[in-house]
Amino acid sequence: MTSGLIFAFAGAALFAMGVAGVLLIDHLLRRILAFNLMGSGAFLVLVGLAQRSDAADPVPQAMVLTGIVVAVAATALALGLVRRFHGLTGKMELPVADDD
């Protein structure tokens, strides 16, 4: 087994953990962290699986750099919304269901 493949395996596990976290965790900050774990997992798979013969491939590396910036943007927006939500309601968890 090559190191690239080990990275890809770790990425798959991280992704699944992240998804489970986003679905199960109610605390919004921790949910954002779970989303980031999920994204990192996908990035690891992207780079690791492409390099499973252990030769570096610049194309997925560049894609991951793009993906990281997108993830930073999404995280920032999420934090902005959570902060506003906290400011308005004083809570860190979304209500169970909306009325109507």
């Binding site: 610049p58 194309v59 590396q61 560049a62 894609m63 750099l65 793009t66 910036v69 997108v70 930073v72 943007a73 999404a74 920032a76 927006l77 902005g80 919304l81």
Partner: peptide, 27 residues
Amino acid sequence: VTAVLLNFRAYDTLLEIAVLLLALLGI
């Protein structure tokens, strides 16, 4: 990697900057 980011797939990078600017606008 820089060649891919800013030449071969520079269009991805252009849209990526748009996404980042967009997050700021959202905030």
